[in-house]
Every structure is written in structure tokens, then in C-alpha cells.
């Protein structure tokens, strides 16, 4: 591998942009495909599929064996609300490989005793979120039940292209949230992107079960193909 290729991989990774290295196994020849160039690449369908699955693999193209190494950013989970559900959700998300950050301006909730060893930001979402690199490899959940905290957080998430946005609350609570967000300028598409009530419908009762339903829904959003996408 050329040093220049390695440098490019590291630059893309540091910026949380996916990058592919395609190696011709017979000749050792290599080329780099950046996310921005994916749409124009002859292997775009294969590459997009491998990116979605987070899987590197050998493929055949034009009778040649090619190894496609996918360097995808580590998925992150941003949790708004240092609540009971979050205490169950955080270790589960970590077990699934996510980098997790919890944001809650209420210091009584956002305490290291309740969230040992977890990056915890006891600030309002408006202050905390711009620093967090919320992007399309981010799952975003708002679970405080407090509009003063959840609403501005969701408005930020809308602008960040998160692959998943979920908000805790019953249908009734959500209907009121929709009204508030619309009043603050959220589009219909943005509103529709919120998974609410949050989590797959598995009859979850305990915080742990709710966490399972949320992580299952996030996994589906990450791994299942989107309509119209390769």
C-alpha cells in the first residue's frame, strides 16, 4: 500500500467519512474510493451494499478477484436524557459496538454515579451537540420527556442526517411534540423521520426491555436497505 493511500484512509476516518480500498488480489494493484466518489464508481452497488453491512469482502468483477476493504466510521449513539432507560440502553449499545455519549443538562440525572465510565455532558443540547459530530453514522435518541431538552435536540438532529432518530413518548405526547416542532420550522419530512413511539413494538415494559426495542429498531435502520437505495 502506498503511504499516500494510507494517509488518505486515515484522513477520511478521522473525519468520519467512509472510504474503500479495492485491491486486485492477483496484481496487488490498489485504488481508493472515497464516499464522495461512490456514486460515480463502476462498483458502486457492491460498495454501497458492503458499506451498509459494514462488511469487507472479496468480490469478482470483470473476471478479476478484488478485495474491497470498507473503512466505515464507528457508529455512535447520542442519548439525550440521563434517565433510567438510558442506564439500560448505554451498556447495550456499547455491546453492539457503538460509541455512546449521554447529554442531559440536569446534573441530578447526568451524574457519574448513575453512568460510570460513560462520556456524559451535563449541558443543554444547543451547547453540547455541535461538538459531537452528529452525522449519518449517528443514531440519536431523545428520552428526557422534557420538551425544553428534547425539542432543541431533535431540531439539531434533523440537520445532521442521522441514520436514526427516535423520541420517547406515547402517540399523544408525540402529537403535541409534532405541533411544537412544526411551530419551530421543522418540515414534514423531518417530522416523519422521528421514530415515535420509540422502539420496535415488542410489548416492552421494563427499562431493559425498552432498551432492547430501541436497539433493535436502530439496528434495523442501520442494516436494512432503504427504499430506493442500492
Amino acid at each position: 500500500m502506498k503511504l499516500e493511500t494510507l494517509e488518505q484512509i486515515n484522513i477520511e476516518r478521522a473525519a468520519r467519512r467512509p472510504v474503500f480500498v479495492v485491491t486486485d488480489v492477483a496484481s496487488g494493484e490498489q485504488r481508493l474510493v472515497k464516499a464522495a466518489d461512490l456514486a460515480a464508481d463502476p462498483l458502486r452497488e457492491e460498495l454501497a451494499k458492503q458499506l451498509r453491512m459494514g462488511r469487507s469482502a472479496m468480490i469478482e468483477a470483470d473476471g478479476r478477484k478484488l478485495f474491497v476493504n470498507v473503512h466505515a466510521p464507528t457508529a455512535q449513539l447520542v442519548v439525550i436524557g440521563a434517565v433510567h432507560i438510558s442506564q439500560a440502553l448505554v451498556p447495550m449499545a456499547r455491546a453492539l459496538g457503538y460509541d455512546v455519549t449521554v447529554v442531559d443538562p440536569r446534573t441530578a440525572f447526568a451524574s457519574p454515579e448513575r453512568f460510570p465510565d460513560v462520556p456524559l455532558i451535563a449541558e443543554w443540547p444547543d451547547e453540547a451537540l455541535p461538538r459531537l459530530n452528529v452525522d449519518r453514522f449517528t443514531a440519536f435518541v431523545a428520552v428526557t420527556h422534557d420538551p425544553k431538552i428534547d425539542d432543541p435536540a431533535l431540531l439539531h438532529a434533523f440537520k445532521s442526517g442521522c441514520f436514526y432518530i427516535g423520541a420517547l413518548g406515547s402517540r399523544k405526547t408525540h402529537a403535541r411534540r409534532v405541533e411544537r416542532l412544526k411551530a419551530q420550522g421543522a418540515s414534514d419530512a423531518e417530522i416523519a423521520s422521528i421514530h415515535a413511539p420509540i422502539g420496535l413494538a415488542i410489548g416492552a415494559v421494563s427499562p431493559g426491555e425498552v432498551a432492547v426495542s430501541i436497539m433493535a429498531e436502530i439496528t434495523a435502520a442501520l442494516r436494512l436497505p432503504k427504499a430506493g437505495a442500492p
Binding site: L6, N10, R13, G54, H71, T74, L222
Partner: peptide, 10 residues
């Protein structure tokens, strides 16, 4: 997405 090759490659 869930591996940690970045430090190694750096």
C-alpha cells in the same frame, strides 16, 4: 462500522 482499525492504521 463496528471495528476499531483506526488507531492501528494511524
Amino acid at each position: 462500522m463496528l471495528d476499531r482499525n483506526e488507531d492501528i492504521l494511524q
